[in-house]
């Protein structure tokens, strides 16, 4: 079975490496090309949020498997300023960075499971899972 990858995310180059790693793991797990693109896109958005809003953090990308299905889990964690209003941050178009405000809501749309935890002043942890064939 494939092994998990843990990467430090602190530069735009790290964003590229993270999404390429995610795509490779998704391919190994057996995702379609379309789903590989979705997973890579979600990783790109989460990794960029780390770089832009928290300066640095880490990302763990791992295959997940149950008796009935396989997928990929991604955890993006940082110890930056955190998010004051998570509900606002999940709305389309909300951005404190002057960008499109589609990273979190868009990511939520393209995965099967989406969890975000944040303590203001202590950082953000986003966990997503995408399963094959759903």
């Amino acid at each position: 079975m494939n092994s998990a990858s843990i990467q430090t995310i602190r530069s735009d180059g790290d964003i590229v490496v993270a999404r390429q790693t995610g795509r490779k793991i998704a391919e190994d797990v057996g995702f379609s090309r379309a789903d590989q693109a979705l997973i890579a896109t979600a990783i790109s958005e989460l990794a960029r949020n780390i770089v832009v809003y928290a300066n640095s953090g880490e990302m763990e990308i791992s295959p997940v498997e149950t008796v009935s299905r396989s997928g990929v889990r991604v955890t993006a964690q940082d110890y930056g300023p955190g998010i004051l209003d998570i509900k606002a941050a999940l709305a389309d178009g909300f951005s404190t960075g002057g960008s499109l405000g589609l990273g979190l809501p868009g990511t939520r749309r393209i995965v099967d499971e989406f969890d975000i935890q944040s303590v203001p002043g202590e950082g953000v942890t986003v966990t997503i899972v995408k399963w094959i064939g759903r």
Binding site: L102, G106, R109, I110
Partner: peptide
């Protein structure tokens, strides 16, 4: 634009 990329863009809202 690759078809897979186009699909991901649409879902993301782009």
């Amino acid at each position: 634009i690759q078809p897979e990329v186009a699909m991901a863009m649409v879902l993301l809202g782009l």
